[in-house]
Design a protein around this nucleic acid. Structure first.
Length: 787
DNA sequence: CAGTGAGCGAGCTTCCGCTTGACTT
């Protein structure tokens, strides 16, 4: 039987939907993304022969390509309906090449929304494959391979095997590294923020902020003294209408940001959950850079809003996509059916759907109308304005009242700055000129803060602003730099510091010194020593590649190629020749130049230099140099939160305090040390890992004994059965249930046998049957490779 | 499991973008 029409799209979920729109003359299949890619290794691009790329069918795609090929041979027309962007055009071209079909049978169609109208319209307007656009993709692909596969081996030689560099990931690392250094350099300044509390004629309290910050305590004292009999008045009152406008519906990047802020999801978790909702047909495609909605969606949202909230809440809006690099091959992320307000299997899926629904609905709702009131309060005749140069000191109170909630009924976008909450604030009624009683003036020191460290999501936001990376790669890029250990996602406890608080009340000034916790970090990205060293190296030798504008610059050239005004090989050739020279020039760089040992200071005991450096097994400090034939110098690994470039001499010295003697327990020596798997206490032949919060440098003998005793109790609770005749044979309770331990071998108890009923004979029988076989097989396949 | 940290050598690693698979304890 012959199928008249074969349609090929990229995603199977999309294929299913479209098949429903097209009827039985059409069979719709998916390519599952790219089907061919550059061959593996360094022979993919023939640099000598005008950068000729060599492609092959990707691993695991042979079966699929064969199926598509067979189907296409049986069809009269093959509709290549891959995405309407650079990569999509390329997939169509690769399909044409790989399926080996007659050109006359091929039609290329595009649509940017999955609606019946859009698909049918596309079928009526087929075109041919846009070779210029395909060439722009080839240039992108070849450039990325050349950059990645020429720089990475330099890192293996000069820094550490297995490292990587690339147009996208290296900029991501640079952002995190530079932010960390800004924070380290940041000089936090304290200044006094002052609030006045005044009593109105009607007896209510009106609170306002002083329009000047002082750094000196004496200025605040003078101000307070001058305020006692100053005579405050309402000097002005302004009431202005204001409005707030809803945010655009989600793109991939804004979805990741909001899910991170409101639901604390990692960017990967957000994408996994969104994928499930998409496959279940609940939301539109989740990898998109567009904020626009289809006509159908606009209508459906308007209907939903009118019926749920009333027609005056509906306001049709189409949002312009902000980012210049957007290719807009899909709609914004939205529910497929606005009348379904809850969807998803797991709890987190439901929460994500709820967020998507609200954001999309709110985007089509009316503005919120507010009334903003600003009241200023001044002392009569400005009696104390002479304090510092004669500027006008005044207090200001701002209040906001919502007159019409509009979209706020449904959704309010959060922001990265946690402290700025925009709650509705109602001010007491006052009249201009009204005299105010002074209740109190409160002034406290606040410290200035550096720009915050990136979260995964705020890093994605920054990358998108720079036009670096694509919706499909944001989450994988973050994972890559984490996997390479260039950055770590960390939780850190804060430190405490003192601040001064001055209060003027009933004519008296009281001073208090209080403490606050600052610098608490939750799931923020910190660069590692490797990340910092690799970044410095790339910045010194491959400045162009890690330049924040590099991608934007090459994107402009890709666009010129897509317009047919520039040959892709010409562009690559112009880039490659100087680039390759730089790569070659790195051969003469000494490893020591790249991985510089930092001098921390001098050991007071020996007078030898203490240095810090990145070693094969991580960062370490060392006392003195290795002399020929001499003894080995003392080494110590850095603690997890320490960095080579910021560790102090004092901190370094304590690192040499290990191993530390903890005295004796039960007549056996106890020693605490740092092991490969963390700090431990060794007691005779037994090892005890330190628990969270215990520090090997400070742990006391008592705590160590408690640790040992607690572990023994836990071990006793593990034992189900022992045999007097053979003390080496035990039945123990493990994490996944009971198991048999014979000597050092752990043996699985077969199904159907009750652990309690096992006899010694049966145990030994199981042990011999198990001999030689590992108790737990190593995980096979690609999951093992990942590690 | 509970040190090591240099450099040599075999043969390995690595890019960015599209998209969803499913080893067996």
């Amino acid at each position: 039987m012959s199928n008249r029409n074969l349609v090929i799209v990229e995603s199977p979920a999309k294929a299913k939907t479209i098949e429903g729109y097209l009827g039985k003359d059409f069979i719709v299949k998916s390519s599952m993304g790219h089907i061919r890619d550059l061959v593996k290794g360094d022979k993919a691009i023939d640099v000598e022969h005008n950068f000729t790329p060599h492609y092959e069918i990707s691993e695991g795609k042979h079966q699929l390509v064969k199926e598509l090929s067979d189907l296409s041979k049986k069809s009269d027309t093959v509709w290549l309906a891959t995405d309407d962007d650079r990569e999509g055009e390329s997939i169509s071209w690769h399909l044409k090449e790989a399926l080996d079909i007659d050109d006359s049978k091929i039609k290329r169609i595009v649509f940017r929304e999955i609606t019946q109208k859009a698909i049918l319209k596309a079928i009526e307007n087929p075109r041919t494959i846009d070779v210029d656009l395909v060439n722009a993709q080839q240039a992108r692909r070849v450039l990325d391979r050349l950059v990645g596969f020429e720089i990475s081996p330099v890192l293996w030689k000069k820094i550490k095997p297995g490292l990587s560099a690339g147009r996208v990931q290296s900029v991501a690392v640079r952002l995190v590294a530079e932010r960390e250094r800004e924070i380290e350099k940041f000089n936090s300044q304290a200044s006094f923020k002052t609030q006045g509390f005044f009593k109105t004629k009607a007896g209510k309290i009106l609170q306002g902020d002083l329009n000047k910050d002082y750094t000196e305590e004496k200025d605040i004292i003078s101000l307070m003294e001058a305020s006692v009999n100053a005579g405050f008045k309402v000097s002005n009152k302004e009431v202005k209408p204001a409005k707030r406008t809803p945010a655009a519906p989600f793109t991939t990047s804004t979805l990741q940001q909001e899910a991170s802020r409101k639901l604390s999801f990692s960017v990967t978790r957000t994408m996994v959950l969104a994928q499930k909702l998409y496959e279940a047909g609940k939301i539109s495609y989740m990898r998109t850079d567009s904020t626009s909605l289809s006509e159908d969606a606009l209508q459906a949202a308007a209907n939903q809003i009118a019926s749920e909230f009333g027609p005056k809440y509906a306001q049709r809006r189409q949002f312009k996509t902000k980012s210049e690099s957007a290719q807009e091959a899909h709609e914004a992320i939205r529910p497929t059916d606005f009348s379904i307000s809850s969807a998803g299997v797991e709890k987190d899926e439901q929460r994500l759907y709820d967020l998507i629904w609200k954001r999309a609905i709110a985007s089509q709702m009316a503005d919120a109308e507010l009334e903003r009131t600003i009241i200023t309060m001044k002392a009569e005749g400005n009696s104390y304005t002479g304090l510092s140069g004669g500027e006008k000191l005044q207090y200001q109170a701002t209040g906001e009242v919502i007159k019409f909630d509009g979209f706020l009924k449904v959704y309010l976008e959060s922001n990265d700055n946690e402290e700025e909450s925009e709650d509705e604030k109602l001010l007491p009624f006052v009249e201009i000129g009204e005299a105010l009683g002074l209740e109190q003036i409160k002034s406290r020191q606040r410290y200035s803060k550096p720009e915050p460290r990136y979260t995964e999501a705020s890093l994605v936001k920054k990358l998108e602003e720079l036009g670096i990376g694509r919706p499909s790669t944001y989450a994988p890029t973050v994972s890559t730099i984490e996997k390479r250990e260039y950055v770590n996602k960390e939780w850190r406890e804060g430190k405490s510091r003192e601040y001064i608080e001055l209060i003027l009340k009933a004519g008296k000034i009281e001073k208090a010194v209080k403490t606050e916790i600052f610098g608490v970090e939750k799931g923020k990205l910190f660069p590692t020593d490797t990340g910092l060293i690799v970044n410095d190296f790339l910045f010194n030798y491959f400045k162009e590649i890690v330049d924040y504008d590099f991608t934007a610059t090459v994107e402009r050239e890709f666009d010129t190629i897509a317009q047919g005004k520039l040959g892709w090989q010409d562009m690559i050739s112009k880039f490659y020749l100087p680039f390759h020279k730089t790569v070659e020039s790195t051969a003469s760089i000494e490893r020591k130049e790249v991985n510089v040992a930092r001098e921390i200071g001098v050991d007071p005991k020996t007078g030898k230099k203490i240095t810090a450096r990145l070693g094969r097994f991580g960062p370490y400090v060392q006392i003195g140099e290795q002399e020929e034939g001499g003894p080995k110098p003392a080494f110590a690994s850095l603690k997890k939160e320490q960095r080579i470039e910021s560790i102090t001499l004092e901190e370094a010295l304590t690192l040499f305090d290990l191993p530390r003697d903890l005295g004796e327990f039960e007549d056996i020596k106890m020693v605490v040390n740092n092991g490969r798997f963390g700090p431990y206490v060794k007691h005779g032949p037994a090892f005890y890992s330190l628990q969270k919060g215990m520090d090997p440098y400070t742990i006391s003998t008592e705590t160590a004994i408690q640790l040992i005793e607690a572990k023994r109790i836990a071990d006793i609770e593990k034992v189900i059965k022992v045999f007097d005749a053979r003390p080496d044979v035990k039945i123990l309770n493990g994490r996944w249930g009971p198991y048999l331990a014979v000597g050092k071998e752990n043996i699985k108890i077969p199904k159907g046998i009750e652990a309690k009923d096992l006899t010694l004979e049966k145990c030994l029988e199981l042990a011999t049957a198990q001999a030689g076989k590992p108790a737990v097989k190593k995980a096979a396949g690609r999951f093992a490779k990942k590690k």
